[in-house]
Every structure is written in C-alpha cells, then in structure tokens.
Computed example of a mutant assay.
Amino acid sequence: MVCPICGEGNACVNLGNKDVSRSCWCNDPSITFPEDLLAQIPLAQRRKACVCRSCALKHQENKQVK
C-alpha cells in the first residue's frame, strides 16, 4: 500500500496481507492523525488509503513548531 499524500509505501500491517496479529505502527498512541492531516488525502482515497508514518510525524512536527 502507498501513502496517498507522498506516494511512498505506508508499511500498513492492517491493510496488507502480512501477519494481522501484529500491531501496526499507526496504533502508537504518540502518533496522531488530526483532521487537517486527513484532509490532505484526495477525496477518492479517503477511508481507503493509509497515511505513512513519515507524513504523520512530519505533520506533527510542523504543528509543534508553529
């Protein structure tokens, strides 16, 4: 799966065919997915594609700097 924001692999365990008993990186409570991040996903891909860890962390860092 690819990130709908940057186009890189999102390493999502939940949507892949990998071992679903493992927890995905996106379940880390220190990583947030605020509405303004999710709004960057193209409409056709919302609720169908996962943002990658890099984009989520970059968004968090940018919010903390402001």
Rank of each mutant, 00 (worst) to 15 (best):
E8N: 12
D36K: 13
L37G: 07
Q45N: 11
A49S: 10
G16E: 01
C50Y: 04
A56F: 01
V20I: 15
R22D: 02
Q45G: 03
E8R: 11
A39V: 14
S23A: 13
D28L: 11
A44T: 13
A49G: 06
R22M: 08
N10E: 01
D36M: 12
E8H: 09
L38C: 08
G16D: 02
P4D: 02
E8Q: 09
A44F: 09
A44C: 11
C24K: 01
N17K: 10
K58E: 10
G9A: 00
A49N: 06
L38E: 08
L37M: 05
P42R: 13
N62C: 14
D36T: 12
I31Y: 01
Q60T: 12
N27C: 10
C6I: 00
V65G: 13
L43K: 15
S54E: 13
R47D: 06
F33N: 14
C3T: 02
C24H: 01
R53C: 02
T32A: 12
C12K: 01
N27W: 06
E61F: 14
S30A: 13
R53Q: 05
R47L: 07
L38V: 04
C26W: 02
R47V: 04
E8G: 05
K58I: 09
E61M: 14
G7A: 04
Q40Y: 06
E8L: 09
C55T: 05
D19H: 03
L37T: 03
G16W: 00
I5S: 04
A11R: 03
S54Y: 11
V2L: 07
I41K: 10
V13P: 02
K48Y: 07
K48C: 10
